[in-house]
Design a protein around this nucleic acid. Sequence first.
DNA 1: TTATATAGACAGACCGGTCTATCTAGACAA
DNA 2: TTGTCTAGATAGACCGGTCTGTCTATATAA
Lengths: 201, 201
Amino acid sequence: MTAERPSPARDRLVETATRLFNEGGYHATGIDRILADAGVAKMTLYNNFPSKDDLIVEVLRRRGEGFRAWLREWVTRSGAASSRDRLLSVFDAQAVWHQNGPAGPGLPFRGCVFVRASGEYPSGDSAIHQAAAANKQAVIDLLAELASDLAVPDPQDLAEQLGYLIEGATVAALTRGRTDSAERAKRSAAILIDAGSPPPA
Amino acid sequence: MTAERPSPARDRLVETATRLFNEGGYHATGIDRILADAGVAKMTLYNNFPSKDDLIVEVLRRRGEGFRAWLREWVTRSGAASSRDRLLSVFDAQAVWHQNGPAGPGLPFRGCVFVRASGEYPSGDSAIHQAAAANKQAVIDLLAELASDLAVPDPQDLAEQLGYLIEGATVAALTRGRTDSAERAKRSAAILIDAGSPPPA
DNA sequence: TTATATAGACAGACCGGTCTATCTAGACAA
DNA sequence: TTGTCTAGATAGACCGGTCTGTCTATATAA
């Protein structure tokens, strides 16, 4: 339904919305503010998206793609040779993200945009909630992909477990300002990985 | 500043607000709706609380106390004899909560109210954010208390780690509907506990 | 009398969304 | 080169509602 034609105004809109939603949340950020910051007319928004909710869905979709691309790039550049170390490098990426490092995924850290989205739109019927869920699942799938070569009985299960650690560390960083949470979680991750596979030589 | 005198109207207000915030979020739930549901006049709200934000803070405070009391009670009733098993029983409590079991902590599961609060009020300056942080820290402290007897090098650190697992499992249950996440996290928790202490005889 | 409650009007800002009217840039044809 | 048509952008008025918060006036009960 939504027009998918690319256009500079549309891009500016989505990028500005991404930034403002990250800073202030979804309900608290009005479209007037987004339009003013993006320098875009209201009709341009509604010619590109049926509603604010659809804009949010698009923001989540793009952000998810960008974040996962950044994460893959990070793992590759880490030069980790083993599946174990590639999985652990994810936690280093997370630490950079939490600490707003210059090599981070591009937004000042305000917690996970998907968690916040599913929190603000808690009903599972909401398209926003579903978009958040899809992006979260995609990260788990990425972890499962990294874990697939591991000599553990159930890589899928391990990926889910590591996902909990990552998620929890991000929440701790947001709510309690625990910017060391990723490093801490990394230690747990190593234990969980090694518990299911022969100890590295 | 806030009047702390108990009154039936005030209690009804806080309880109704707790329920509605849990269902729909903080920004999305207007005070008129709360007042109508509670059967309370608007001036009663503003005689008891300077603002909606202060009402939210009080909701979080009470909910935190109630939740932790429920959790302590659960652990006690589990009859677990060891620190290890008491810690693991927390994950059973969590599973009941996620699955809206009758013995749960009293609200239909919509994710953690504190995580959602710090997500909707992401600035660390916000009193709401700080209230959420305090309650989250109190849960970690409770875990640390349960872990204090454990023969591990750093019970405090272990509590933090288990906290990540719990947090991540709750997020997974909310965003992806993973209502089995607590049982899964429990397995990881056992590994982490045992990795830091002599295996039980 | 004093404190607490009620109902409900009211203010002023802001919400998402619609609408009209105008401008500009590019494609195309003469 | 010039004129025309079209798509997409602009500004901004406007709509009905909802938002938080204030106010007055009244009732009730210790």
